[in-house]
């Protein structure tokens, strides 16, 4: 099967600091890949590569290839706005815009020049349904996004990301700021969404990585120590460092 996301001998430097070291990795479409590792291991830096979020940081230098759908996303001719339509992102803390629930989801479409209000309304409903939020907010779409709970806000952010029809969703600890019930809803949602999307998730919650992902990548000191089937990683990891990390003996 063709990979939707690939890196080849990928190195990333923050000035002199070598943050990612020779990463070669492939992610198949419609799967969930979990990135795990201790703080500072490079997993969030790796995640941010795929929608070029690292470009915003001074002194970043990248060598090697980063391919999305077979295209080199660091090629000069690439349109970053277009890339971010394909690759959506959800952050650790819910970050709704100071607008209504409806307008939060419609925002991406409006920014992209869509003016057909009927289409926008249909897409908002569809995205909220996909994010398992529609039934909870359908009667208060005009209310401020800040009036709903943190867990609902995070699902709203997911709906906002889905509304522009990306192919890939990047999630940076999407449930770490949520209570267990909201967290479980996000996990269920991730499981549902992989039918239509490819998902990469950074998480510090190893049980969550085990529950939601098909593959798991363990990063340590900027290196990809082990990458493989999640069941294998959590039952018989090949590398001693992986074993020591997931069993809580270091990190």
């Amino acid at each position: 099967m063709n990979s939707i996301i690939s890196t080849r001998f990928l190195n990333l430097y923050y000035n002199e600091f070598h943050a990612l070291k020779g990463i070669t990795m492939d992610i198949q479409p419609n799967t969930v890949a979990a990135l795990i590792g201790p703080s500072g291991c490079g997993k969030s830096t790796f995640l941010r590569l795929f929608n070029r979020m690292n470009d915003l940081i001074d002194g970043v230098k990248i060598t090697g290839d980063v391919l999305v759908n077979g295209k080199d996303i660091y090629a000069d001719v690439l349109d970053v706005v277009e890339l971010r339509r394909t690759v959506g992102m959800v952050f650790q803390k819910p970050n709704p815009f100071p607008k209504s629930i409806f307008e939060n989801v419609a925002y991406g479409m409006r920014v992209n020049g869509i003016t057909d209000n009927q289409y926008i309304a249909e897409k908002v409903e569809e995205s909220l349904r996909q994010a398992a939020l529609w039934d909870e907010v359908k009667d208060k779409l005009k209310k401020s996004a800040f009036e709903i709970s943190g867990g609902q806000q995070q699902r709203l952010c997911i709906a906002r990301a889905l509304a522009i029809e990306p192919k890939i969703l990047l999630m940076d600890e999407p449930a770490s700021a949520l209570d267990p019930i909201s967290s479980a809803k996000i996990e269920e949602l991730i499981w549902e969404l992989k039918k239509d999307y490819t998902i990469m998730i950074v998480t510090h919650n190893l049980q969550q990585a085990g529950r939601v992902s098909d593959t798991t990548a363990f990063f340590y000191l900027g290196e990809l120590v082990e990458y493989g089937d999640t069941k294998e990683i959590f039952t018989q990891p090949k590398d001693k460092k992986t074993q020591n990390y997931i069993t809580g003996r270091f990190g």
Binding site: Q236, P237, T247
Partner: peptide
């Protein structure tokens, strides 16, 4: 404790 890997085995 949700043991994994060698601990689970």
């Amino acid at each position: 404790f949700s043991p994994v890997a060698v601990d689970l085995r």
